[in-house]
Simulated assay, not measured.
Amino acid sequence: MSGTADALGQAPDQPVHAVLALGANLGDPAATLSQAVQDLADTPGITLTGTSPRAVTAAVGGPAGQPDYLNQVLTVSTTLSPRALLAACQAVEQAHHRTRDVRWGPRTLDVDVIAYGQLRSEHPELTLPHPRARERAFVLAPWSWLDPEAMLEGARVAELADQAADAGTVRREESR
């Protein structure tokens, strides 16, 4: 465990490819996602390399009656350690008034680190790849729209998206 904890704090020698998932269902989710993408792109040590089309999805888990979510996946190149990348994501959440009152409850913004290069971590602070990403079409579908060849733990992301229990609830946001 201490080896994993050490790896989480270790800045890479070379930039690392990472995948981030964003979601929002309170306030103005479209404006929040646009600003959050800009906030992340403006963070030293993070270079935005791709943004997916947005997905509109029903809430998965949590209290009933939540508004639909707007979800998006970003790919970045980062020189930040995994822990520092997580801290940057959490700082962006805080800037958008994220509260953690109810697990899987409605939120102004959620930013998850889905993958950080090939790093595997079972540390409670940051599990990588994200422990539920393989089963969440609201993450997998936008990721596959961004990168149809993307892989997660040896499986094609697009295939995982099609097999996810929530696959039928994910649709592309209509252009404005």
Rank of each mutant, 00 (worst) to 15 (best):
R172K: 12
V157A: 01
A58G: 14
P131A: 10
M1D: 14
P129F: 01
P124K: 11
E135T: 13
L74K: 13
Y116T: 00
W143I: 02
G61L: 07
A36L: 00
A133R: 04
T99V: 15
D6K: 11
M1V: 13
T79Q: 13
V19A: 10
H96L: 00
L86G: 04
G3T: 13
V113L: 10
L126W: 01
L109E: 01
D68W: 02
D13M: 01
D101M: 03
P131G: 12
R120Y: 06
D6T: 15
A5Y: 05
A165Y: 04
R98I: 08
D112T: 09
A84R: 15
V111R: 07
T79E: 15
H17M: 11
L40C: 08
A58L: 14
V16W: 09
Q10Y: 10
L85W: 13
D13R: 13
Q35I: 08
A30V: 07
S52K: 04
D39M: 14
D147L: 09
P82A: 10
L33G: 02
P67T: 10
Q94P: 00
L74Y: 09
T99W: 08
D101W: 02
V56A: 03
R172I: 04
L146Q: 03
Q94C: 01
Q10K: 15
P67C: 10
V139R: 00
T127A: 14
G27T: 05
E174P: 14
L126R: 07
D162H: 10
T169W: 13
L70C: 13
L140Y: 13
D28C: 00
Q10P: 00
T75V: 06
R103K: 03
S52A: 06
W104Q: 07
G9M: 02
G168K: 09
Q10D: 15
Q66D: 05
E174I: 12
L74M: 05
D28F: 07
